[in-house]
Design a protein around this nucleic acid. Sequence first.
DNA 1: CATAGCACCTGAGGGC
DNA 2: TGCCCTCAGGTGCTAT
Length: 271
Amino acid sequence: MPELPEVETTRRGIAPHVEERRVRELVVREPRLRWPVDPALADHLRGATLGPVERRAKYLLLPAGDAGTLILHLGMSGSLRVIDAAEPPAAHDHLDLVLEDGQALRLRDPRRFGAALWQPAGTTHPRLAGLGPEPLGPAFDGDYLYRTSRGRRAAVKAFIMDNKVVVGVGNIYATEALFRAGIDPRRAAGRIGRERYRRLADAIRAVLTEAIEAGGTTLRDFTHSDGAPGYFRIRLAAYGRAGEPCPACGRTLVTSQVGQRATVRCPACQT
DNA sequence: CATAGCACCTGAGGGC
DNA sequence: TGCCCTCAGGTGCTAT
């Protein structure tokens, strides 16, 4: 489920409940995530006081004392909730980060593509090394995309979904941004001009920002009811709408495969 | 290095 | 109802 806005929403939701709290225990019910959970992870975390929760790409970073940082990834189906630690775990509730105040940060992930990793202080975890710039950060703009894409023959949609190029742009928002920018997702990345890349970078930033703002409205409920952030979906113009009329011109939106992923485009607006 | 294809895993939904 | 098929919002590994 999570793309960057969902991860950012989760970050903002959990932060007030975990920052400055001490870790009582990490309970691992199912270590078989994307990578096996290191048995030493619980030892690293026990007794540590958690610092400001940060996000890099779709990874959540939870500083744990002086020793290092807990890194969480939600994969395709992961979610985090803040709950009463006594609440019985349901299916696919693989990890509990139990806090001394009696609450717990609980990871649920049916498909187990998520991860829980340890990054010792002063090091960069290999999974974070080599990542491209944040799409909402200062290093990302149309000129960057233009420069980076020269000579690339891959489809522009695959190009902007490449984590080495820019992080956090998944299938939904790549589809939406290309629609907004009027660019055919199949077009070779190296054959798109500077001006169109400026439009694309603006579209990526806009759609991500809008989605984060939409997610923000659910944050107050993070520890209420089931305690999960409502994974919102902003009004999407193209994603999931194959066969429907294009919101801009009325032509029928079509679906196809680009870089092994389903994509939707307007055959008239996107060139 | 860039690219394409495959892999991991479970659940939901559609067709019969 | 049940079975079988396809598909899903991520990303790392491998071969070319």
